[in-house]
Design a protein around this nucleic acid. Structure first.
Length: 883
RNA sequence: GGGCGAUUAGCUCAGCGGGAGAGCGCUCGCUUCACACGCGAGAGGUCACUGGUUCAAUCCCAGUAUCGCCCACCA
């Protein structure tokens, strides 16, 4: 006998262990089913499961579990990402607590430490994924830094280099002065702030007393100024073009040039050019052959290129000093407030500097072309389609991708430098040495590039590197390309776009046919969850409190295709109640000896109630399947919820009660078997979303089943769905006969008062089975079914009974007469309103007569129905008045 | 500056060219032999605003307002 409530904690761990051990999650390259592949976006190895993970992994798990049952050899390929910067920071912080800096250890030792850390703590998120019930093929778990993937990375880098799609260049990059590495544009976060604009007067060479005034938001960079630009058509400055300014504080003569970049509308129309510290100025500098004077070191402090006074100063201290000095010289014209955006490193949180360095770049523009085309031609589709615009927008304006990072943790760039700086890019050191020997005609010492690759470089290969590429493995052949990639919109650029580029380049096919973009999870107030705001919801704590199934169900139910999900705990509690409801439905079935029969054929049921519920179950099962296939997880959840609670429990089980307690043994047996079958269906189509409670019940109901629910087959409901109106009608008629029999049983003549209150119901036990609840439900049901079809007999019978029900309820004392009178009056007013509305519509339609005839007809019918309903209510009211 | 999204019941959200929905909350009544994590009955909404298209608009179009997100090198 089942307990009264379901206890998730007891079963979750047990079931998960059994699933995993039995190999239930494993894909099978030998299977004769078609493959279905989802590549798990590899979470950071440093990570711990947050609610966003819980969402994305739940949705993926729903898809995988569904496909596994339905018709596919499903592979959910798991793994983790080495997360260069994030991981290095974690370990550095840990070392710092012991007073150790990574430089003290040296590169090799430090990397060793990181591996140690990974071995100890890197498994957290993987363990947590298990807790969530995720069912990837764990045997195939990969790590972006493991041997095979590293080999793939090296091969890709070398090939792209040799194709000219990766190159080394000296240009401005976003430099993080705290982490001492370059970062990509995507890793820069622009924050709006109110800053200052300083107006400095630069003296014109040879013209005492003539100044050109420039505005700047970054006074400290003036030490690196190598030119001034004005607009060619700006008459204010025409006579100064070609002359020089003397850069104050430095004394360098810098040319004044005409360049379209200078906007006469902005500032003073004259702009200082600092090619080494500003992306725009870099371009302008190139056009005019300006020198690039770098005045900052790797910490963004002033370096030795600057006048001695400022050397070693932090950039912000230097700013103050320079402003003060300029003021003293009388060269500070004014200061204004200025709204501006400041670039911050998304990991370090400090202001990043455009800084001139040698870095490796990937030619993203060339790689992007096929990736754009693949989406244009529909080879890969985004769901919702909306996101394709975002993708196109970025891809069409894509900038060179800086792939090198000045870190120690990551894939070392496979490039070696000869004594004269010649570069040898090869997959291994041996190959590089061979190439160098050939180049120099003798063996030489080579030094490997100290940099590592951007973490996203290896992630970009994930869709094929995890399957064994460059080896021609059976997995690679079978599971590439993937069916769908499930992810949040925040990494469309970081990851989706880059996988498209790499997949198309190296596999000559898209990495996935669909990209399902889901929302991001925010708190109840719509704010991004963050530790500093204290509004984080820990999914594992929620699983502890409410059970994993409830959390999964909530996430699925809220995964509509919007942008944000605002998660509230009360909703999780609501779905926890739903889990209990299923549990208790099963308990009820158990108590009434509803056991699955192997020979049961849902097509063969005879009673109206059973035929009806079989059809409804099929309809719901198909609804769940269709919703999952369309990535409408909320609809799948809703269909499951509604069918289980409001169809199966509220109606079917209620009406099964009189059967179970009656004397018709044949009907009893059939209804028991039907109830058991329907409950099984609920478990089956509930499994993808709520795997634990469904599996537990599945096993409890029959311990001798051939397989676990997770391996059960999704039933074919064809021939069962689509109950026709007649069947529905029959059922209502049957229902009405039940009600009539109640009256007969209780010896209540049709005209007399039927006491339906529970306490007063003194009739036979059978009569109590369907007391006032059934009547009230029946009443609601009847209303929802009207207007009836064209079978006059059935229609008449129903209307007659419906009328008597309306009357019956108040007479029975179930409803307070005064209240009922008020309700009826209100009802009449409402119907009047509706009649008026339809009348107006009809008159419009009649006048212009453009509406399709069936629509007009429909409206006439509705009008008639409303009028009939009104008459009925009026009649009921008059009877009440009379009583 | 460019782009996108949102605005529907007290709250969190679905829906969508022809009858306003769910969960939670609220009110009333129920220790009914599955379930109080329950059962039944209710209250509550000019579907942001203004125009337009249409026989018909919460839904399509245009504009306005408010909120939010993404992208962007603005001195």
């Amino acid at each position: 006998m089942l307990e009264k409530t379901y206890n998730p904690a007891e079963v979750e761990e047990k079931l998960y262990g059994e699933w995993e051990e039995s190999g239930a999650f494993a894909a099978d390259t030998q299977s004769n089913k078609a493959p279905y592949t989802i590549m798990m976006p590899p979470p950071n190895v440093t990570g711990s499961l947050h609610i966003g993970h819980a969402l994305t992994f739940t949705l993926q798990d729903v898809l995988i579990r569904y496909r596994r049952m339905k018709d596919r050899d499903a592979l959910w390929q798991p793994g983790t990402d080495h997360a260069g910067i994030a991981t290095q920071m974690v370990v550095e912080r840990q070392l710092a607590e012991q007073g150790i800096h990574r430089r003290d250890l040296g590169r090799e030792k430090f990397v060793e430490k990181v591996w140690e850390w990974k071995a100890e703590s890197g498994g957290t998120i993987i363990r947590q994924l298990r807790r969530l019930g995720a069912s990837p093929d764990w045997e195939k778990e990969r790590f972006t830094l493991d041997e095979g993937l590293s080999k793939a990375v090296a091969k890709v880098f070398v090939q792209l280099y040799k194709e000219g799609l990766i190159y080394r260049d000296k240009r401005l990059v976003n430099w993080d002065p705290k982490l001492h590495t370059a970062i990509s544009d995507l890793e820069v976060e622009q924050r709006e702030t109110t800053g200052k604009m300083w107006y400095f007067k630069y003296p014109v060479e040879g013209q005492d007393g003539t100044f050109i005034t420039i505005g700047t938001t970054r006074p400290e960079t003036m030490l690196g100024d190598t030119g001034i630009a004005v607009h060619p058509e700006d008459e204010r400055y025409t006579d100064l073009v070609g002359k020089n300014c003397i850069l104050p504080l430095v004394g360098r003569a810098i040319p004044i040039v005409a360049d379209e970049y200078a906007d006469p509308e902005k500032g003073t129309g004259a702009v200082k050019i600092t090619p080494a510290h500003d992306f725009n100025d870099f371009e302008v500098g190139n056009r005019h052959d300006f020198a690039r004077v770098n005045v900052l070191d790797e910490n963004a402090a002033i370096n030795d290129e600057a006048p001695e006074k400022y050397r070693g100063m932090d950039r912000f201290d230097a700013r103050k000093a320079i402003v003060a000095d300029m003021e003293e010289l009388g060269l500070l014209e004014k200061i204004e407030d200025n709204a501006m955006v400041i670039p911050y490193g998304d990991r370090s949180g400090v202001v990043v500097e455009p800084w001139l360095t040698d870095q490796w770049f990937a030619d993203a523009k060339t790689l992007a072309k096929p990736a754009i085309e693949a989406v244009e031609t529909g080879k890969t589709k985004f769901v919702p389609k909306q996101w394709e615009n975002t993708y196109f927008e970025w891809m069409r304006n894509i900038q060179p991708w800086c792939v090198s990072r000045q870190l120690w943790w990551g894939h070392r760039i496979p490039a070696w430098f000869g004594p004269d700086g010649e570069i040898f890019v090869e997959e291994t050191e041996a190959e590089a040495k061979a190439a160098a020997a050939k180049h120099y005609g003798k063996a030489v010492e080579l030094t490997q590039d100290p940099d590592v690759l951007d973490t996203w470089f290896s992630s970009a290969l994930w869709s094929f590197s995890t399957l064994g590429w460059p080896e021609e493995t059976p997995e690679l052949k079978r599971y590439y390309p993937g069916d769908v990639l499930v992810t949040g919109f925040d990494i469309i650029f970081f990851w989706v776009a880059r996988m498209m580029m790499m997949g198309l380049h190296f596999m000559k096919d898209v990495p996935f046919r669909e990209v399902y973009i889901h929302a991001l999870v925010r708190d109840e107030k719509g704010q991004k969850m963050s530790k500093s705001k204290g509004n984080v919801m820990d999914p594992l704590e929620l699983c502890d409190s409410y059970g994993t199934d409830s959390v999964r169900f909530t996430l699925a139910a809220m995964a509509a295709q919007g942008r944000d999900i605002k998660l509230s705990e009360s909703r999780i509690a609501g779905y926890r109640n739903f889990v209990t409801k299923i549990w208790n439905a099963a308990r009820f079935c158990e108590m009434n000896e509803c056991r699955p029969r192997a020979t049961f054929d849902p097509k063969s049921v005879t009673t109206t109630l059973n035929r009806w519920i079989v059809a409804k179950a099929a309809e719901s099962g198909n609804g769940v399947a269709a919703a999952i296939e369309a990535y409408r997880f909320n609809e799948a959840a809703e269909a499951l919820y509604h069918f289980t609670w409001h169809t199966f429990c509220d109606w079917f089980l209620e009406f099964a009660k009189p059967v179970f307690q009656g004397n018709d043994e044949a009907a009893k047996a059939e209804t028991r078997a039907t109830a058991a079958w329907v409950l099984d269906q609920i478990l089956i189509f509930g499994q993808p979303i709520m795997p634990f409670v469904t599996e537990e019940l599945w096993r409890h109901i029959d311990e001798n089943r051939g397989s676990a629910l997770i391996n059960a087959e999704w039933p074919d409901y064809s021939g069962l769905a689509a109950p026709d109106a007649e069947a529905e009608m029959d059922w209502v008629v049957d229902l009405i006969s039940v009600i009539r029999s109640v009256r007969a049983e209780m010896n209540v003549p049709p005209s007399a008062k039927l006491d339906l209150s529970v306490k007063g119901a003194q009739g036979a036990d059978e009569a109590r089975l369907k007391t006032h609840e059934a009547l009230i439900l029946a009443n609601a049901r009847l209303e929802s079914i009207a207007p009836v079809g064209d079978d006059a007999d059935v229609s008449g019978a129903i209307q007659a009974v419906a009328g008597s029900l309306t009357l019956l309820l108040p007479l029975a004392g179930v409803i307070d007469l005064d209240q009922e009178r008020a309700r009826l009056k209100k009802e009449i007013a409402k119907l009047d309103g509706e009649i008026g509305k339809i009348e107006k519509k009809l008159s419009n339609q009649g006048f212009i007569a453009k509406a399709p005839p069936e629509v007009v007809e429909e409206n006439r019918e509705r009008m008639q129905a409303a009028a009939d309903a009104k008459a009925k209510v009026e009649e009921a009211l008059s009877r009440i008045e009379a009583a």
